[in-house]
């Protein structure tokens, strides 16, 4: 997807919550390769934009440290997989599915995957 600056400044990013799509920020708030955190329905969600302009929304809680910091990680790629690296201990997750590519379980024994949300622009 290639979008010109003019058309993107007015776009709004929306996340699918339990009660439908909710606007969370403007597309221009997102720096390519970085994320922001938003609050919806009591959840902390990390929203990312990659270099190609694609959007992703995942849980903000890093399962390895327990801290709510995923939005402050670095977006990247492993092979074809778009990824986000946790800023705390650097485990890497698949941005599309939330699956952790480095370890299966967090230290509490729970699966290390991040919940994902549907996200779109309007």
């Amino acid at each position: 997807m290639t979008t010109s600056i003019e058309s993107t400044t007015t776009l709004t990013v929306e996340i699918a919550g339990e009660t439908g799509w909710m606007p969370v920020c403007s597309y221009a708030d997102l720096v390519p390769g970085r994320g922001v955190a938003v609050l919806i329905e009591g959840h902390q969600v990390a929203v990312f934009r990659d270099r190609a302009g694609r959007l992703y929304a995942l849980a903000n809680r890093d399962p390895f440290s327990g801290a709510y910091v995923m939005s402050r990680g670095i977006v990247g790629q492993r092979g074809e997989v778009p990824t986000i690296a946790s800023p705390m201990y650097k485990q890497v997750f698949d941005l599309r599915t939330g699956e952790c590519l480095d370890e299966d379980e967090g230290p509490d024994g729970d699966p290390a995957a991040l919940r994902t949300w549907a996200v779109r622009t309007r």
Partner: peptide, 11 residues
Amino acid sequence: PGGDGCDVCKP
């Protein structure tokens, strides 16, 4: 090329 790099090369 055209990609995002990763948390090693970017910093």
